[in-house]
Design a protein around this nucleic acid. Sequence first.
DNA 1: TGGCTATTTGGCGAAATAGGAAAATAGAAG
DNA 2: CTTCTATTTTCCTATTTCGCCAAATAGCCA
Lengths: 97, 97
Amino acid sequence: MTDNAKYDQMAVIMKAMAHPTRLFILDKLSEKEHCVCELQELIGADMSTVSKHLSVLKNAGIIDNRKQNNQVFYSLICPCVLDVYQCVIEVNKLKKY
Amino acid sequence: MTDNAKYDQMAVIMKAMAHPTRLFILDKLSEKEHCVCELQELIGADMSTVSKHLSVLKNAGIIDNRKQNNQVFYSLICPCVLDVYQCVIEVNKLKKY
DNA sequence: TGGCTATTTGGCGAAATAGGAAAATAGAAG
DNA sequence: CTTCTATTTTCCTATTTCGCCAAATAGCCA
């Protein structure tokens, strides 16, 4: 399999996005930045769980964060993530069951 | 978390793509259709492993197949998968280490 | 029918992922 | 300095994913 590393790197990013909660987070962040507690409220899971999802996205290089007082605000780095959404939605529409 | 099912469905498709070998397969199929044995040759893994990767992609509705004699040819259903590639590559470029 | 080739399926152990609880950390505020 | 709040990290357990092997299946062709 040629150029192994290329696909490994891509898989890291895709894997980071491949979770319902993380897709939800990205969707929210595409509108505006949010702090962890806002996202936790919207998601309804344990704060530590939300924090871990955020760090997965951060490590993959998809989102960034900034600290303001004792809150951490997360934001989307690359808006092209929305293109991915479009494609996935299209694949779903074409799907035969 | 509103509209839970939407993100679940999206995650199924993203998860199916989120593996180096499957990304490689999609890349190959974006050029032209391939039978399982051709892909197996390119990938170098066990035939059963390749077959399972293909069935993951098929179940997600990303690829389709047709039988010709005793071979099975797989092909991409939706070319927009390449847009996803573009985005992932862009995210990688922006990545700070 | 029987053999041959291509592919899929089932099973199993190893590794990765998920999520809650509790502990650790960071910074603001009293 | 102590407390409080927001967040992250660690620990533990349950579940899922991965990849090989062996067995099953499907469709040719003699």
